[in-house]
């Protein structure tokens, strides 16, 4: 016991640099008003969120987040681990419903319909707002069935030919067609990690969504697969609105038009991506992007 105490003494007296910055960061948020810096609101937004609060049981995960997402843009959400960016993303198509203790207040709108309205049906909502997850999660079925599942349950294809067409178009859009066209009947789980993630993107595209949510889609992939997905995102933004959560700031800078910075449950800044990374308005954003903590 004595040994442990003595060995710890030098550390506890001299606080590490990170700890100092963290405590300073907390103080800052507590003191300053938590209004979001930058320009969170746009004209004619596709989705708009006002004063969104999310609680896991008693713990508040997100405080008063207000942000707009405009048509055909890529919005990147960055921030340190546990800052609530994934939680917020999962509010946008109500995937948080699967967590029992999760409670959402505030207003989230897709076009003019309230996402969290009691009458809102999550099935069509999730068809309109698709999702790609952190870990590639193809169904343990064939490549064809993976893509065909969504259109089948929604009844998007009247005939088998139409369905095959949807599968082909989705795979082409996801840039996977050339690699898998000869083995559509093989299991999707047999593909490489990057291919699996593109398969998941194709699966999301197949139901014809308007918005695609991506929760750290490249965190399990190698740099080459990551580059492929980033190219894909740049192409997809012509047809879809994309919200992407990422830990990789370079990735945010490469793929997005606007970037949102989350910090311990607060949305501190939303700016044009080039502005946020060159002239951040909030002190904490600057600390984060310059690597002072994170």
């Amino acid at each position: 016991m004595l040994q442990i105490l003595s060995s710890n003494t030098p550390r506890s007296t001299a606080k590490s640099r990170e700890e100092r910055i963290q405590s300073k960061a907390r103080m800052l948020v507590d003191r300053e008003d938590r209004c979001t810096a930058g320009d969170p609101f746009v004209e004619n937004p596709r989705m708009s969120c006002r004063n969104v609060n999310v609680y896991y049981g008693d713990k508040q995960a997100i405080r008063d987040v207000s942000i707009d997402i405009s048509e055909n843009e890529v919005l990147a959400m960055i921030g340190p681990s546990g800052c609530g960016k994934s939680t917020f993303l999962r509010c946008l198509n109500r995937m948080n419903d699967t967590i029992n203790i999760c409670r959402v207040t505030g207003e989230l709108k897709l076009d003019d319909s309230d996402i969290y309205d009691k009458k809102m049906d999550v099935v069509p909502l999730r068809a309109r707002v698709g999702m790609v997850f952190q870990k590639p999660n193809p169904f343990p079925k064939s490549i064809y069935d993976n893509i065909a599942y969504g259109p089948t349950i929604h009844g998007l294809a009247a005939t088998k030919t139409e369905l095959t067409e949807i599968v082909e178009i989705s795979l082409i859009k996801a840039g996977l067609w050339d690699e898998v066209k000869d083995r559509l009947d093989q299991p999707g789980t047999g593909l490489s990690g990057g291919q699996q993630q593109r398969l998941c993107i194709a699966r999301a595209i197949a139901v014809g969504p308007e918005v695609i949510l991506m929760d750290e889609p490249c965190s399990a992939l190698d740099p080459i697969a990551t580059a492929t997905i980033e190219e894909l995102i740049s192409e997809l933004k012509q047809h879809y609105t994309i919200v992407i959560v990422t830990h990789n700031m370079q990735q945010a800078a490469r793929v997005s038009q606007r970037t949102a910075y989350f910090h311990l449950g607060d949305l501190l800044e939303v700016s044009q991506t080039d502005v946020l990374f060159t002239r951040p308005s909030h002190q904490l954003t600057e600390d984060y992007i310059t690597g002072r903590f994170g």
Partner: peptide, 14 residues
Amino acid sequence: PPSIREAALGVGAS
């Protein structure tokens, strides 16, 4: 794995 459930719900399965 819960990822399978999420995948299905994510494409709009009830």
